[in-house]
């Protein structure tokens, strides 16, 4: 995948595939490719949230460092999905770590320029926000189900 251009990747990534050619062309201008080896961090808790990651292939762990325990993985994100929404709530910092578990390719979109773009083109902004809400909702739903500990031993919930 790493030999594809950002425009080509945007054309096949589920997050952007069904946007118009013009929309994708706009986004391609803000995008660059990142390749991560296992255990490389895509982003780290506390750092400024400046980019949006479309995971192209690989596996990324969203996790938190717990003193005395080390990193505690909470959820994983596969190729075809997206990582990071704090950039949209700028100015803000990352709340969690994102670490590659496998060799991972991501398309990195510049957060500040994305926000500027959305001010210019509100319709595109809404379309991206809508997709992002979908990702957030899926992630939240999964987190809620994980909370239930469905496969745990029978006990009072």
């Amino acid at each position: 995948m790493s030999d594809h251009t950002p425009a080509e990747i945007l054309g096949s990534h589920p997050f952007t595939a069904d946007l118009s050619d013009e929309d994708r062309a706009q986004l391609a201008k803000l995008a660059r490719l990142g390749v991560y080896d296992p255990d490389d961090y895509l982003l780290r808790e506390g750092q400024p949230a400046t980019a949006f990651y479309l995971i192209v292939e690989g596996l990324v762990s969203i996790e938190l460092f717990i003193p005395g325990h080390g990193p505690r993985p909470l959820q994983t994100v596969e190729g075809g999905s997206a990582v990071g929404w704090s950039w949209m709530l700028a100015p803000s910092r990352w709340e969690f770590d994102a670490r590659a578990l496998e060799r991972t390719t991501a398309l990195i979109l510049d957060g500040e320029r994305l926000r500027d773009l959305f001010v210019e083109d509100c319709c595109l902004g809404l379309r991206i926000a809508h997709r992002l809400l979908f990702v957030v909702a899926e992630r939240l739903k999964a987190a809620r189900l994980q909370l239930l500990d469905l496969y745990g031993p029978p006990r009072e919930l």
């Binding site: 596996l59 762990s61 505690r72 994983t76 999964a142 994980q146």
Partner: peptide, 23 residues
């Protein structure tokens, strides 16, 4: 395969089964 919870030694997916269907 996915699990609800794991420590850092697990290199596989963490999440719930219904979410795998999208993949």
């Amino acid at each position: 395969v996915t699990v609800d919870r794991a420590d850092e030694r697990w290199r596989g997916q963490i999440g719930v089964v219904p979410a795998l269907i999208a993949q």
